[in-house]
Design a protein around this nucleic acid. Structure first.
Lengths: 134, 134
DNA sequence: GTGATTGCAAATCTTTTGCACTAAA
DNA sequence: TTTAGTGCAAAAGATTTGCAATCAC
């Protein structure tokens, strides 16, 4: 497997006004170099350890939240005990297997909501999340 | 406001093979006597304190889970930091206001999913949850 | 150099657990 | 009496925070 260059993640970070530090670059490469991923802070920290990247768990948490605020990641709520983050930020939904605690993307086109109620007075719909529990 | 009798919650508990103890009866009355409610363990514990019901937080947690297993409550996942429980166990969905952390029911008929993908190999759909974030 | 970022350890918050005590049957 | 249920305090697990050390610019 070819190691990809650093330039593209550095660009991405600069674009998000995030200083391209060693830790952020390494985590961004883990997250974005191999197609879409679903991670938790713990799992990404473990991946980093395995890849011999020295980064603390606190920094992983901070980084995941900064990336999410910058729109590079999306937080998925499927379990009230753990935060999941998705590198796919397009309109889409999820299968969640409660047995293995694993997520699988459902493309936006494969779910059609043909009826939806109006939001409560004075509110605007920010997002509609569909979770199919299997 | 008329105090309702105890008999109906005692029946309900017996029906669920749960011994009708003082604490369970009191919590069941708080939960089911006034229409549908959305609670967290903390909020129900606070309600109990206010109603001068002596019950520990651990018992509130245990009770909420027992009620959920018995099908009297349903757990709703909208926030990865906290568990919410809904006294409405019918097919329905939710608005979730991220500003106030409050839930509002959407009746089952008001959401129509006209397209849904097939579940992954060997899996069965257990439930489809739609959360409209406002 | 200067201010942003990091690491660590401690703190926080929600939830669970172990065990002696109490109460329903 | 017998066994399920409860309370408390301690433990556990996820996440956040404070602050000194380090790094990007």
């Amino acid at each position: 497997m070819d190691a990809k260059p650093y330039s593209h993640v550095i660009e991405m970070l600069r674009g998000a006004s995030l200083r391209p530090t060693r830790q952020r670059i390494a985590l961004a490469k883990l997250l974005f170099d191999d197609g879409h991923r679903h991670v938790t802070a713990e799992s990404l920290h473990a991946d980093a350890q395995e890849a011999a990247i020295r980064v603390s768990l606190a920094t992983v948490y901070n980084t995941l939240h900064q990336f999410t605020e910058a729109g590079l990641l999306r937080e998925i709520v499927v379990d009230s005990q753990r935060c999941y983050f998705d590198t796919n930020t397009e309109n889409h939904h999820h299968f969640f297997c409660e047995e293995t605690n694993s997520l699988q993307d459902i493309s936006g086109e494969d779910v059609v909501l043909s009826k939806l109620p109006a939001p409560p007075e004075g509110k605007t719909i920010k997002r509609v999340d569909v979770v199919v529990r299997v």
